Amino acid sequence: MPNGAQILVEGLVDAGVDVCFANPGTSEMHFVSALDGAPRLRPVLCLFEGVATGAADGYGRMAEKPACTLLHLGPGLAGGLPNLHNARRARTPVLNIVGDHALHHKRLDAPLESDITALARTVSGWTRRTCRAGDLAGDLAEAVAAAYGLPGCVSTLVVPADVSWSEAGKGGAGPIAPRTGAVSPDAVSGAAQALRSREPAALLLGGAATRGAGLTAAARVAAATGARLLCETFPARLERGAGLPPVERLAYRGSDAVAQLSGVRHLLLAGAAEPVSFFAYPGQPSRLVPDGCAVRSLAAGSEDVTAALEALAAAYDALTPIPQAPIRPGLPTGALTAESAAARSARCFPKEQWSSTRRTPPGCGCPAPPRAHHRTTG
């Protein structure tokens, strides 16, 4: 009969989780052993917990399904908290498996004993400790469902060592269900009515609205109504570049964001929260929305923001937005800035000039010797 660790690994595979970023210790060794028999779950050893959680956050944002982390007790989870905080704010689907002392060992207050559940709740939308091996399959199924469901969250399952090594029954989490969400007709009609007022308006995008289909629908609305198109300062994932409509980011500094929003009378939130300053400053507002501006939520939380934007675009004779054209920038001069560094990279590494046999881009115009400045290409 399989033990608890094998049931965990089997359940992760059945749920479609295919990578585990791990920084294990003694209490997780049975899980590590179970990985040897599960080739479809790829283990990635990380030498620091923050690397494991950061990698899981990035993987979840891009793959749009949970990555798994394997962490060692409360101190191991604590080492990964900063990037799990980022995952929580970005609503990234992440599943933490955190090992703990065996149940009969906890009362001894061993040197690494801590309140793992309290730590987990600071960043997790779902947290549970499994105390019986027979409950692992069901608890894992709930953890995966919570992580993957809209709007996505960090799930943390705490697994004592003796639960991992004890015999457990059969079971699995099952395949991950598609992420679906509702659209509020009232929110769509209210947004359309606000935009028809022809008062200055802005769309603030976040979540799925900053990806291809959502961006295109939002740009159609902006083209038809004259509304400004903005996105969160730090979107979870922003698709941009040639073939996509441009979108302006909300400024990081509160005073700059206030200037950006000055004069806006209607602010429509599409997958984004009402903007506030990152920090409080003497004599400056914490809320960035100008006085007299009406704030409406088009879609948030478990709602389908892309479908809501497409429904809003359908309420107008929406124009097709002009996408950004592919442009190769000239070789920059002057001070080194983020823009000039990006322009230099684009100038020196034009994708269209790469081939399977050419390892350095020809004719980039860079004054540096080819070997010195293209060394990273191999």
Rank of each mutant, 00 (worst) to 15 (best):
P321G: 07
D135P: 09
P82W: 13
L8Q: 07
G241A: 06
A187H: 13
G263N: 02
A102F: 00
C131W: 11
A251W: 00
P39A: 07
G152M: 11
A311D: 14
P290H: 02
S166M: 13
S164F: 11
L47Q: 10
V258K: 10
C364F: 09
T156P: 08
L95V: 15
G25W: 11
L319H: 08
S155H: 09
V163W: 02
S297D: 14
R42M: 09
P82L: 09
L140I: 10
T225D: 03
A273G: 13
H266T: 05
L244I: 10
E113P: 00
Y59I: 10
A87H: 06
A34C: 01
V264H: 04
G171N: 05
T360E: 06
C364W: 07
S355Q: 03
E274K: 14
A143P: 01
F278M: 12
R211V: 00
G80P: 09
A335G: 08
G174D: 00
A318R: 05
Q193G: 15
Q324E: 14
T357P: 04
L73A: 03
L269N: 10
A218H: 05
H266P: 11
G181M: 02
P2H: 07
K170F: 06
P329V: 12
R121F: 09
R89L: 15
A270Y: 12
A102T: 07
A223P: 02
L77C: 08
A187W: 01
G50E: 10
H104I: 07
A201R: 11
A299K: 13
G207I: 03
L108R: 01
A227L: 09
E274W: 00
N86I: 15
L150W: 03
Q193D: 15
P370L: 15
E64W: 06
R128W: 03
A224N: 05
G16A: 10
D317Y: 00
E64Q: 14
R196Y: 03
P323V: 02
A15I: 00
A242S: 13
P66N: 00
T225V: 04
D186G: 13
L81P: 04
H266Q: 12
L331V: 06
D135M: 04
I7A: 13
A300K: 11
T53S: 14
Y252E: 08
G58L: 12
G79E: 13
L229I: 07
G271Y: 04
G292L: 12
A299H: 10
A299P: 06
H105L: 13
P362M: 06
S340K: 01
A141F: 00
E64P: 00
T337V: 01
V276D: 01
Y316G: 06
A270Q: 09
A311S: 14
A143N: 02
P178D: 03
T306H: 03
A173L: 08
G125H: 09
P350V: 01
T320C: 07
A22Q: 05
L81Q: 11
G254I: 06
W165A: 10
A87K: 06
G363N: 12
D109T: 09
A208Q: 15
T216A: 07
W126C: 07
R42D: 04
Y148T: 15
A78N: 12
A218S: 08
R107C: 03
G16L: 12
R359V: 13
G171Y: 14
S345F: 12
E339T: 15
A280C: 02
G190R: 15
H101W: 06
A223Q: 01
P282C: 06
S345C: 10
F279E: 14
